[in-house]
Simulated scan of single mutants.
Amino acid sequence: MATKSHGIEEERTHEIIKIEEGVHVEPSTTAKTNADIFCSSASVVTITQKLIAEVIGTYFVIFAGCGSVAVNKIYGSITFPGICVTWGLIVTVMIYTVGHISGAHFNPAVTITSAIFRRFPYKQVPLYVAAQLMGSILASGTLALVLDVTPNDYFGTVPVGSNTQSLVLEIVITFLLMFVISGTGTDNRAIGELSGLAVGMTILLNVFVAGPISGASMNPARSIGPAIVKHLYKGLWVYIVGPIIGAIAGAFAYNLIRCTDKPLKDKDLARGGLFLRASAA
Score class of each variant (00 low, 15 high):
residue 63 F to Q: 06
residue 63 F to Y: 06
residue 65 G to A: 15
residue 65 G to T: 11
residue 66 C to G: 14
residue 67 G to R: 01
residue 67 G to N: 00
residue 67 G to P: 02
residue 68 S to M: 13
residue 70 A to P: 09
residue 71 V to P: 01
residue 73 K to Y: 05
residue 74 I to G: 05
residue 76 G to Q: 13
residue 77 S to Q: 11
residue 77 S to F: 06
residue 77 S to K: 14
residue 78 I to W: 05
residue 78 I to P: 08
residue 79 T to S: 15
residue 80 F to E: 14
residue 83 I to L: 09
residue 87 W to F: 15
residue 87 W to R: 09
residue 88 G to K: 01
residue 89 L to M: 14
residue 90 I to D: 11
residue 90 I to V: 15
residue 90 I to H: 04
residue 90 I to T: 14
residue 91 V to L: 14
residue 92 T to K: 08
residue 93 V to I: 15
residue 94 M to A: 04
residue 95 I to K: 03
residue 96 Y to E: 00
residue 97 T to R: 08
residue 98 V to K: 08
residue 100 H to I: 02
residue 102 S to N: 11
residue 103 G to Y: 08
residue 106 F to N: 02
residue 106 F to H: 10
residue 107 N to M: 10
residue 108 P to I: 07
residue 108 P to E: 06
residue 109 A to Q: 09
residue 109 A to M: 10
residue 110 V to D: 00
residue 111 T to Y: 06
residue 111 T to L: 14
residue 112 I to P: 00
residue 113 T to L: 02
residue 114 S to Y: 04
residue 114 S to K: 02
residue 117 F to E: 05
residue 117 F to G: 04
residue 118 R to A: 09
residue 119 R to W: 01
residue 120 F to I: 04
residue 120 F to A: 02
residue 123 K to S: 13
residue 124 Q to W: 13
residue 126 P to Y: 13
residue 126 P to S: 12
residue 126 P to W: 11
residue 127 L to E: 07
residue 128 Y to V: 06
residue 130 A to W: 10
residue 130 A to V: 14
residue 131 A to G: 05
residue 133 L to E: 04
residue 133 L to D: 00
residue 136 S to R: 01
residue 136 S to C: 06
residue 137 I to S: 08
residue 140 S to F: 07
residue 140 S to G: 10
residue 141 G to V: 12
residue 141 G to L: 13
residue 143 L to Y: 09
residue 145 L to N: 11
residue 146 V to Q: 03
residue 146 V to G: 01
residue 147 L to A: 11
residue 148 D to M: 00
residue 148 D to K: 12
residue 149 V to G: 00
residue 149 V to Y: 01
residue 150 T to L: 13
residue 150 T to W: 07
residue 151 P to T: 05
residue 151 P to S: 10
residue 152 N to F: 15
residue 152 N to R: 15
residue 152 N to H: 12
residue 153 D to R: 05
residue 153 D to S: 15
residue 153 D to C: 11
residue 157 T to R: 06
residue 159 P to G: 15
residue 160 V to C: 11
residue 160 V to A: 15
residue 161 G to I: 12
residue 164 T to W: 09
residue 164 T to R: 09
residue 164 T to Y: 10
residue 166 S to Q: 05
residue 167 L to R: 01
residue 169 L to R: 01
residue 169 L to C: 06
residue 170 E to N: 10
residue 173 I to L: 14
residue 173 I to A: 02
residue 175 F to T: 02
residue 176 L to P: 03
residue 177 L to I: 10
residue 177 L to K: 02
residue 177 L to P: 01
residue 178 M to I: 00
residue 179 F to C: 01
residue 179 F to E: 02
residue 180 V to C: 00
residue 180 V to H: 00
residue 181 I to C: 00
residue 182 S to P: 02
residue 182 S to K: 00
residue 182 S to G: 05
residue 183 G to V: 07
residue 183 G to N: 03
residue 187 D to R: 04
residue 188 N to A: 08
